[in-house]
Simulated scan of single mutants.
Amino acid sequence: MQQTESIRARGCLRGLACGDALGRPVEFKSASQIEHKHETVTEMLANGSHGQPAGTITDDTELATCIAESLVANDGFDPDDVASRFVDWLDTDPFDVGLMTRDAISKLREGMDPDEAGRAVWESRPEGSNAGNGSVMRCAPYAIAFRHDEIQLERVSRRSSAITHADPRCQWGCVVLNRTIAGLIRGDDHALRASQDAPDELLGALQRVNDVLYDTQDPDLLENDLATSGYVVDTLQTAFYYGLGAETAEDAIIHAVNRGGDTDTVGAIAGAVAGARGDTGPLPDRWLSVIDEGPRIDSLADSLLDLDPAP
């Protein structure tokens, strides 16, 4: 079982990094713009959005790595340590950082408590710009570390999200994503594990995914409507549709990225889900070979599996 879980845990973090890096060069482009310039993006591209070399990861993978390293160093969730690592990361002047994430980490740098920083930023934002993707994109390491403790997994997923993204849709989005990934790593069925405590808007979007994937409804009823904005509900709906429904992890990432929009994050989450399934085949070497962080990611996945986090 441990060997199988290792394959799935590595697949999860590899899928996250590959989706992030494949989507980075076309971030903010529409599907039609991507098709016009590239037909279909299937290879790691250089330049493009942010002007980085091929295979370059963004804040999605970098912040997930911060969380993974914190979990390993502390044998569990320490919000103060996670916050400190976020501050150190922002001090490196990353080329890609979301607005809410930057504002919340800036408050952490000023000494605000991790339980307060994200709420302060959230309360300052109007509806429509207060429920971004910045916490769901980075939360997968918790699913590996707490895969056998659903109560703890829910608690740390919500509390970690709230460090930068306190909106209930973001907090519960992390819970649903991590519960689903944890089940996949354990080898359970491929169900999308929503929580009835989640906001109705999130539950409704995820129910549509379940209806199409598992109740034999026409996929065109959903696929034509999938959005890839920076809104957490849109992102999770699209990422789950491809991450759970594609035959291979490679296909999941390619389909997600080529829809345009927030391509690195939608690709990263779809890749994390598909990579954790265990039945989607290995990610292509032509992708993994150009991602410099690959060995580090594999080592962190193995270390997360070995944790016995304290309550």
Rank of each mutant, 00 (worst) to 15 (best):
T65M: 14
M44L: 15
A182V: 14
C12F: 05
I144W: 08
K29W: 10
N210V: 13
A246N: 09
T58F: 03
Q152R: 14
S303F: 08
T58G: 08
D81M: 10
P114Y: 11
A268N: 01
I57F: 11
R286G: 07
L13P: 08
D298I: 12
A73H: 12
I34Q: 00
A272K: 02
R147I: 08
S129R: 02
S32E: 12
V121G: 02
A46S: 13
E35Q: 12
P25N: 00
F77P: 06
F28L: 01
F240P: 07
S49M: 06
A73G: 13
D149C: 09
A68Q: 07
P126G: 00
L90T: 06
E39H: 08
S157R: 09
R193G: 06
H148P: 04
S129D: 02
S32D: 10
A17F: 05
D218P: 05
R208M: 06
R138F: 07
Q217R: 15
D59G: 08
Y241A: 13
R14F: 13
R109V: 01
S124E: 01
R85D: 04
S84P: 00
A246Q: 14
A227V: 04
M112K: 06
L304H: 09
S160N: 13
P219D: 10
A249Q: 07
L213D: 09
L300W: 11
Y142A: 14
S70N: 11
I253N: 08
T235P: 02
V136G: 01
S157A: 15
T216R: 05
T216F: 11
D93W: 00
G187N: 09
S195E: 15
D75R: 09
S303C: 07
A17T: 03
E62D: 12
L226C: 08
A205S: 14
P94T: 02
D78G: 12
G98F: 02
V97D: 00
V136M: 04
R119K: 07
D91M: 05
L90P: 01
H36K: 12
A301D: 10
H38K: 03
L22A: 03
L206P: 06
G281M: 09
A310V: 15
R14D: 14
T58R: 04
I7Y: 10
G111Q: 00
A246H: 12
E201P: 01
T65D: 02
P25L: 01
C12W: 03
A227I: 04
S84Q: 11
Q152T: 12
D279F: 05
V82E: 10
P53G: 09
Y214I: 04
P126S: 00
I181S: 12
E110R: 05
S195H: 13
V87H: 07
A145C: 10
A191L: 11
R286I: 10
L206E: 04
A145L: 08
K29P: 00
N47W: 01
A46Y: 04
C66Y: 10
L288T: 15
E27Y: 04
K37M: 01
S30C: 00
S49V: 02
L108N: 06
D225H: 13
V156K: 09
G243E: 04
I151T: 15
N74G: 04
E247C: 07
G187R: 11
D302F: 12
R169A: 08
G76R: 08
